[in-house]
Amino acid sequence: MEMREIEVFLTLAEELHFGRAAARLHLTQARVSQVISRQERQLGGLLFDRSNRRRIRLTELGGQLRADLGPVHAQLRDSLERARLAARGRTARLRVGMMPFNVPDLQRYWEAFRSRHPECELQVRRAPYVEPLARLRDGDMDVFVTWLPVDEPDVTIGPVLFHDPRVLAVAADHELAGHDAVPHEALADFAHAMPPAMPDYWEDGYLGFYTPRGRTIERIEEVTSADELIHLVTTGEIVHPFPSHVTRYWSMPHVRFLPIPEMGTIPYALVWRRDGESELVRALARTVREIGAMHV
Protein backbone atom coordinates (compact mmCIF):
# COMPACT_ATOMS: atom_id res chain seq x y z
CA MET A 1 0.00 0.00 0.00
CA GLU A 2 1.07 3.57 -0.64
CA MET A 3 1.11 6.11 2.21
CA ARG A 4 -2.13 7.75 1.10
CA GLU A 5 -3.89 4.39 0.85
CA ILE A 6 -2.79 3.56 4.39
CA GLU A 7 -4.22 6.89 5.55
CA VAL A 8 -7.53 6.11 3.84
CA PHE A 9 -7.78 2.74 5.57
CA LEU A 10 -6.80 4.04 9.02
CA THR A 11 -9.16 7.02 8.79
CA LEU A 12 -12.09 4.81 7.81
CA ALA A 13 -11.14 2.36 10.58
CA GLU A 14 -11.39 5.26 13.04
CA GLU A 15 -14.55 6.89 11.69
CA LEU A 16 -16.42 3.72 10.66
CA HIS A 17 -18.41 5.98 8.35
CA PHE A 18 -17.59 6.59 4.68
CA GLY A 19 -18.94 10.16 4.65
CA ARG A 20 -16.99 11.34 7.68
CA ALA A 21 -13.82 9.60 6.51
CA ALA A 22 -14.13 11.21 3.07
CA ALA A 23 -14.61 14.64 4.64
CA ARG A 24 -11.48 14.26 6.80
CA LEU A 25 -9.45 13.05 3.85
CA HIS A 26 -10.86 15.67 1.44
CA LEU A 27 -11.90 12.89 -0.92
CA THR A 28 -15.23 11.76 -2.33
CA GLN A 29 -16.98 8.81 -0.71
CA ALA A 30 -16.67 6.98 -4.01
CA ARG A 31 -12.89 7.41 -3.96
CA VAL A 32 -12.64 6.10 -0.38
CA SER A 33 -14.79 3.10 -1.31
CA GLN A 34 -12.63 2.47 -4.38
CA VAL A 35 -9.40 2.49 -2.36
CA ILE A 36 -10.80 0.13 0.29
CA SER A 37 -12.18 -2.27 -2.33
CA ARG A 38 -8.79 -2.42 -4.04
CA GLN A 39 -7.09 -3.15 -0.73
CA GLU A 40 -9.55 -5.95 -0.04
CA ARG A 41 -8.87 -7.50 -3.44
CA GLN A 42 -5.13 -7.31 -2.85
CA LEU A 43 -5.42 -8.91 0.59
CA GLY A 44 -8.03 -11.48 -0.40
CA GLY A 45 -10.55 -10.66 2.34
CA LEU A 46 -12.96 -8.04 3.62
CA LEU A 47 -11.62 -5.29 5.87
CA PHE A 48 -15.04 -3.85 6.77
CA ASP A 49 -18.47 -5.35 7.35
CA ARG A 50 -20.86 -3.15 5.37
CA SER A 51 -24.08 -5.02 6.23
CA ASN A 52 -25.30 -2.07 8.35
CA ARG A 53 -25.81 0.86 5.98
CA ARG A 54 -25.69 3.46 8.78
CA ARG A 55 -22.43 2.30 10.37
CA ILE A 56 -19.80 -0.13 9.17
CA ARG A 57 -17.49 -2.14 11.42
CA LEU A 58 -14.06 -3.69 11.14
CA THR A 59 -13.78 -7.38 10.35
CA GLU A 60 -11.24 -9.52 12.17
CA LEU A 61 -8.87 -9.01 9.25
CA GLY A 62 -9.46 -5.28 9.33
CA GLY A 63 -8.81 -5.10 13.07
CA GLN A 64 -5.54 -6.98 12.68
CA LEU A 65 -4.43 -4.71 9.85
CA ARG A 66 -5.26 -1.59 11.86
CA ALA A 67 -3.28 -2.89 14.86
CA ASP A 68 -0.27 -3.63 12.64
CA LEU A 69 -0.37 -0.52 10.46
CA GLY A 70 -1.22 2.10 13.09
CA PRO A 71 2.17 2.27 14.89
CA VAL A 72 4.12 1.91 11.64
CA HIS A 73 2.17 4.75 10.02
CA ALA A 74 2.62 6.98 13.08
CA GLN A 75 6.39 6.41 13.14
CA LEU A 76 6.72 7.05 9.41
CA ARG A 77 4.57 10.18 9.61
CA ASP A 78 6.61 11.52 12.54
CA SER A 79 9.90 10.81 10.75
CA LEU A 80 8.75 12.66 7.64
CA GLU A 81 7.47 15.55 9.73
CA ARG A 82 10.80 15.89 11.56
CA ALA A 83 12.59 15.92 8.22
CA ARG A 84 10.24 18.62 6.87
CA LEU A 85 10.78 20.73 9.98
CA ALA A 86 14.56 20.36 9.77
CA ALA A 87 14.49 21.45 6.12
CA ARG A 88 12.80 24.68 7.23
CA GLY A 89 15.21 25.25 10.11
CA ARG A 90 12.69 24.26 12.80
CA THR A 91 13.10 21.74 15.58
CA ALA A 92 9.54 21.43 16.89
CA ARG A 93 5.90 21.82 15.93
CA LEU A 94 2.81 22.78 17.93
CA ARG A 95 -0.63 22.07 16.43
CA VAL A 96 -3.59 24.16 17.58
CA GLY A 97 -7.11 23.04 16.64
CA MET A 98 -9.74 25.79 16.53
CA MET A 99 -13.42 25.19 17.20
CA PRO A 100 -14.30 28.90 16.72
CA PHE A 101 -13.89 30.60 13.34
CA ASN A 102 -12.02 33.72 14.47
CA VAL A 103 -8.39 32.83 13.78
CA PRO A 104 -7.59 36.44 12.68
CA ASP A 105 -9.05 37.86 15.92
CA LEU A 106 -6.51 35.82 17.87
CA GLN A 107 -3.54 36.66 15.66
CA ARG A 108 -1.84 38.62 18.45
CA TYR A 109 -1.47 35.40 20.46
CA TRP A 110 -0.06 33.40 17.54
CA GLU A 111 2.35 36.16 16.48
CA ALA A 112 3.63 36.65 20.03
CA PHE A 113 4.25 32.91 20.44
CA ARG A 114 6.06 32.68 17.09
CA SER A 115 8.32 35.63 17.95
CA ARG A 116 9.18 34.09 21.33
CA HIS A 117 9.75 30.59 19.93
CA PRO A 118 11.18 30.86 16.41
CA GLU A 119 12.39 27.28 16.61
CA CYS A 120 8.79 26.05 16.73
CA GLU A 121 6.40 25.83 13.80
CA LEU A 122 2.96 26.84 15.08
CA GLN A 123 0.09 25.39 13.03
CA VAL A 124 -3.41 26.78 13.58
CA ARG A 125 -6.13 24.72 11.92
CA ARG A 126 -9.88 24.27 12.08
CA ALA A 127 -10.68 21.41 14.44
CA PRO A 128 -12.84 18.56 13.11
CA TYR A 129 -16.55 19.03 13.70
CA VAL A 130 -17.09 15.40 14.68
CA GLU A 131 -15.74 14.30 18.08
CA PRO A 132 -12.98 16.90 18.40
CA LEU A 133 -12.15 15.81 21.96
CA ALA A 134 -11.47 12.32 20.61
CA ARG A 135 -9.11 13.83 18.02
CA LEU A 136 -7.34 15.72 20.81
CA ARG A 137 -6.93 12.46 22.73
CA ASP A 138 -5.70 10.68 19.59
CA GLY A 139 -2.93 13.24 19.18
CA ASP A 140 -4.23 14.88 16.00
CA MET A 141 -3.76 18.23 17.75
CA ASP A 142 -1.66 19.34 20.71
CA VAL A 143 -3.92 22.15 21.92
CA PHE A 144 -7.63 22.70 21.33
CA VAL A 145 -9.47 26.04 21.43
CA THR A 146 -13.07 25.39 22.45
CA TRP A 147 -15.92 26.69 24.54
CA LEU A 148 -16.21 25.97 28.24
CA PRO A 149 -17.05 24.11 30.33
CA VAL A 150 -14.84 21.14 29.53
CA ASP A 151 -14.87 18.68 32.41
CA GLU A 152 -12.80 15.65 31.39
CA PRO A 153 -10.41 13.94 33.82
CA ASP A 154 -7.68 13.62 31.19
CA VAL A 155 -7.92 17.20 29.87
CA THR A 156 -6.30 20.33 31.34
CA ILE A 157 -8.14 23.65 31.09
CA GLY A 158 -5.86 26.54 30.17
CA PRO A 159 -6.41 30.29 29.88
CA VAL A 160 -9.48 31.86 28.29
CA LEU A 161 -8.76 33.65 25.01
CA PHE A 162 -12.05 35.51 24.62
CA HIS A 163 -15.76 35.68 25.53
CA ASP A 164 -18.38 36.04 22.82
CA PRO A 165 -22.11 36.81 22.88
CA ARG A 166 -24.45 34.39 21.13
CA VAL A 167 -26.42 35.22 17.96
CA LEU A 168 -29.19 33.14 16.37
CA ALA A 169 -28.82 32.25 12.70
CA VAL A 170 -32.14 32.12 10.83
CA ALA A 171 -33.10 32.03 7.16
CA ALA A 172 -33.65 35.43 5.54
CA ASP A 173 -37.36 34.65 5.09
CA HIS A 174 -37.80 33.15 8.57
CA GLU A 175 -40.51 34.63 10.79
CA LEU A 176 -37.82 35.88 13.19
CA ALA A 177 -35.67 37.50 10.48
CA GLY A 178 -37.15 40.97 10.96
CA HIS A 179 -36.60 41.06 14.73
CA ASP A 180 -33.84 43.10 16.35
CA ALA A 181 -33.16 40.41 18.96
CA VAL A 182 -34.50 37.05 20.11
CA PRO A 183 -35.56 36.19 23.69
CA HIS A 184 -34.10 33.00 25.14
CA GLU A 185 -37.57 31.49 25.56
CA ALA A 186 -38.21 31.76 21.81
CA LEU A 187 -35.58 29.10 21.10
CA ALA A 188 -38.10 26.47 22.22
CA ASP A 189 -40.46 27.51 19.41
CA PHE A 190 -38.19 26.25 16.64
CA ALA A 191 -36.20 23.15 15.71
CA HIS A 192 -32.42 22.97 16.15
CA ALA A 193 -29.67 20.68 14.92
CA MET A 194 -28.44 17.65 16.82
CA PRO A 195 -24.63 17.74 17.05
CA PRO A 196 -22.52 14.60 16.59
CA ALA A 197 -21.68 12.67 19.73
CA MET A 198 -20.40 14.91 22.52
CA PRO A 199 -20.78 14.98 26.32
CA ASP A 200 -24.21 16.28 27.36
CA TYR A 201 -22.74 18.91 29.69
CA TRP A 202 -20.58 20.26 26.85
CA GLU A 203 -23.51 20.50 24.45
CA ASP A 204 -25.59 22.10 27.21
CA GLY A 205 -22.87 24.71 27.71
CA TYR A 206 -23.29 25.83 24.12
CA LEU A 207 -27.06 25.48 23.74
CA GLY A 208 -29.03 24.36 26.76
CA PHE A 209 -31.58 21.58 26.54
CA TYR A 210 -34.20 23.78 28.24
CA THR A 211 -35.18 27.44 28.30
CA PRO A 212 -35.17 29.38 31.60
CA ARG A 213 -38.85 28.44 32.04
CA GLY A 214 -38.14 24.75 31.49
CA ARG A 215 -39.36 24.37 27.91
CA THR A 216 -37.50 21.83 25.76
CA ILE A 217 -35.19 23.12 23.04
CA GLU A 218 -35.70 20.40 20.46
CA ARG A 219 -32.94 18.88 18.31
CA ILE A 220 -34.26 17.18 15.17
CA GLU A 221 -31.43 16.12 12.87
CA GLU A 222 -27.79 15.21 13.38
CA VAL A 223 -25.28 17.24 11.42
CA THR A 224 -21.62 16.38 10.86
CA SER A 225 -20.18 19.63 9.45
CA ALA A 226 -20.58 23.39 9.68
CA ASP A 227 -21.54 23.50 5.99
CA GLU A 228 -24.38 21.06 6.60
CA LEU A 229 -25.47 23.07 9.62
CA ILE A 230 -25.69 26.40 7.83
CA HIS A 231 -27.43 24.73 4.87
CA LEU A 232 -30.26 23.59 7.15
CA VAL A 233 -30.50 27.14 8.47
CA THR A 234 -30.83 28.58 4.97
CA THR A 235 -33.60 26.13 4.09
CA GLY A 236 -35.53 27.19 7.19
CA GLU A 237 -35.55 23.68 8.69
CA ILE A 238 -33.66 24.79 11.79
CA VAL A 239 -32.36 27.84 13.60
CA HIS A 240 -28.98 27.74 15.31
CA PRO A 241 -27.02 29.86 17.81
CA PHE A 242 -23.45 30.84 16.98
CA PRO A 243 -20.80 32.92 18.76
CA SER A 244 -21.14 36.42 17.38
CA HIS A 245 -17.71 36.49 15.73
CA VAL A 246 -19.11 34.42 12.83
CA THR A 247 -20.88 37.53 11.58
CA ARG A 248 -17.47 39.02 10.72
CA TYR A 249 -16.40 36.02 8.63
CA TRP A 250 -19.62 34.68 7.10
CA SER A 251 -21.26 36.97 4.59
CA MET A 252 -24.49 35.16 3.72
CA PRO A 253 -27.34 37.05 2.05
CA HIS A 254 -29.78 34.24 2.86
CA VAL A 255 -29.03 34.21 6.61
CA ARG A 256 -29.80 36.71 9.36
CA PHE A 257 -27.90 36.77 12.65
CA LEU A 258 -29.96 38.01 15.61
CA PRO A 259 -28.61 38.77 19.10
CA ILE A 260 -29.77 36.60 22.03
CA PRO A 261 -28.89 38.97 24.89
CA GLU A 262 -30.33 36.79 27.66
CA MET A 263 -27.93 33.94 26.91
CA GLY A 264 -24.88 35.98 27.88
CA THR A 265 -21.40 35.31 26.58
CA ILE A 266 -19.62 32.02 25.98
CA PRO A 267 -15.93 31.61 26.95
CA TYR A 268 -13.36 29.97 24.67
CA ALA A 269 -10.16 28.60 26.19
CA LEU A 270 -7.09 26.52 25.46
CA VAL A 271 -7.35 22.89 26.55
CA TRP A 272 -4.90 20.02 26.17
CA ARG A 273 -4.34 16.40 27.19
CA ARG A 274 -2.78 16.02 30.63
CA ASP A 275 -0.40 13.39 29.28
CA GLY A 276 0.38 15.58 26.26
CA GLU A 277 1.49 18.63 28.21
CA SER A 278 4.90 19.83 27.06
CA GLU A 279 7.06 22.90 27.54
CA LEU A 280 5.72 24.29 24.26
CA VAL A 281 2.12 23.81 25.39
CA ARG A 282 2.94 25.59 28.66
CA ALA A 283 4.70 28.33 26.69
CA LEU A 284 1.62 28.93 24.55
CA ALA A 285 -0.55 29.10 27.68
CA ARG A 286 1.85 31.63 29.24
CA THR A 287 1.76 33.71 26.08
CA VAL A 288 -2.03 33.76 26.04
CA ARG A 289 -2.18 34.79 29.71
CA GLU A 290 0.40 37.55 29.30
CA ILE A 291 -0.95 38.98 26.03
CA GLY A 292 -4.50 38.69 27.31
CA ALA A 293 -3.63 40.61 30.45
CA MET A 294 -2.23 43.44 28.31
CA HIS A 295 -5.58 43.79 26.51
CA VAL A 296 -7.87 43.77 29.55
Rank of each mutant, 00 (worst) to 15 (best):
E2W: 14
M3P: 09
E15Y: 11
F18W: 13
F18S: 04
A23V: 08
H26G: 11
Q34L: 12
V35T: 15
R38V: 15
R38Q: 12
Q39N: 09
Q39I: 11
R41I: 12
Q42A: 15
G44M: 13
L47W: 00
F48D: 00
S51M: 10
S51G: 06
R53S: 10
R54K: 05
R55T: 05
I56K: 02
R66D: 10
L69G: 12
L69M: 15
G70K: 15
L76K: 11
L76E: 11
L76W: 12
D78K: 14
S79H: 14
S79Y: 13
R82S: 14
R82F: 07
A83M: 15
L85R: 08
A86I: 07
A86F: 07
R90I: 02
R93P: 04
R95L: 14
G97L: 05
M98N: 01
N102M: 01
N102E: 03
D105Q: 09
R108D: 10
R108Y: 12
W110R: 01
A112F: 11
H117S: 08
C120H: 07
Q123R: 15
Y129E: 06
E131T: 09
L133D: 01
L133T: 01
A134C: 06
R137K: 11
D138C: 07
L148E: 04
D154T: 14
G158S: 05
V160A: 07
P165C: 05
L168S: 01
A169M: 00
A171P: 03
A172C: 06
E175C: 09
A177T: 02
V182C: 03
P183K: 01
A188T: 03
D189Y: 09
A191T: 14
H192M: 08
P195D: 03
P196Q: 08
A197C: 13
A197H: 15
M198H: 07
Y201D: 11
Y201L: 08
Y201M: 12
W202H: 13
E203H: 06
D204E: 15
G205R: 04
Y210P: 00
Y210I: 02
G214M: 05
I220Y: 08
E221K: 13
V223Y: 06
D227P: 00
L229I: 05
L232V: 06
T234V: 09
T235Y: 13
E237M: 12
H240N: 07
H240Y: 06
H240A: 00
Y249L: 02
W250R: 00
M252I: 03
H254W: 10
I260S: 05
P261I: 01
G264R: 13
I266Y: 06
P267A: 13
Y268C: 04
L270E: 03
R273V: 04
S278K: 11
E279A: 15
L280A: 09
V281Q: 04
A283C: 06
A283N: 05
L284D: 02
R286K: 12
R289T: 11
I291V: 14
G292E: 08
M294E: 15
H295Q: 13
